[in-house]
Amino acid sequence: MTTEPGTPRPTVERNNARTRWLHAAVSTTVLVLLLTGWWLTLGQEGRPSPLSELTGQSDAELHTTIGWVFTGVAVLGAVAGWRAARTLLTDSVRFRRADVRWFAHWPRAVVTGRFARHEGHFDPGQRLANLALIVLLLVLIVTGIGLWSVSGGPAFVWFNRLHRWATYLFTPVIVGHVLIASGILPGYRGVWRAMHLGGRLRRRDAARVWPGWLERTDAAASAVEDEGVDGPGEDDEPRQARFH
C-alpha cells in the first residue's frame, strides 16, 4: 500500500469491509423480504414463488424467517457499528443552506454530472433517502414483530395496515437508491464501487459526488503521512466516522 509521496492513489476507499458486509446482509435480506412481501400482497399466496420453490418454505414462512434475520442484522449492525450508525444519523439530519442549491441543480446534474458543491459525507439527496429508509425500516421491523406476535385480531389489522403502507413508501425509495447506485445515470457513474468489491471508487467520481468528503479524507491521509508510519490505530473504525 505504498505510494510515492505527493501522488495520491487513483482510487479512494469510501467504505470499509465491515460496512460493506453489513450493507450486503441488509440488501440481501431486504430484497428477499420485498420479493416475498409483494408476492403475497399481489394475491399469489398458495402459489410458491421461485424463492419459495428454491428454499422449500412457503412465501409467508420465508418472509417471517428472513424478517427475523433482517432484524438481527439491523440490531447487531447498530450495536457493533454504533459509531458508523451515529455518523449516518448525524450527517443525514444535517442540512445546510447551500444544499438548496444542490437540490436545484440535481435534476440536470443526474445527466451531466455537474452537481453543486456540498460539504456532507452524504449528498443532500442521499441524506433525505437515508432518513426515509431508516424511519421506514424501523416501522417495518416494529410492525413486522407486531404482526408475528398477535397473529390475528384487531391489533393485527393495524399492524398490517402500517406494514403495507410503509412498504408502499419504502419500495420507490429503494428502487431510486438502486437506480442511482447502479451507475446507470451518467452523473452517478462509478459510485457503485463505493459499496462493492473493495469499496474504492475513482477519485474523479468521488470529487464529483462527494467533494467535501474527499477533501477531508485527503487532508486526513496527508496528516497521517506527515506523522510518519505509525499512524493512528483503530483501523476497524469506519473511515466515515472519523471525519465528522
Partner: peptide, 23 residues
C-alpha cells in the same frame, strides 16, 4: 472483523426465529 459480525447476526436471528412462529 466483519465475519464474526455476520456470523453473530445470523446466530441471533436464528435464535429469534426459533422463539416463535408457527405452532
Amino acid at each position: 472483523m466483519s465475519r464474526p459480525l455476520m456470523v453473530s447476526s445470523f446466530a441471533l436471528a436464528l435464535v429469534l426465529a426459533a422463539c416463535g412462529g408457527d405452532d
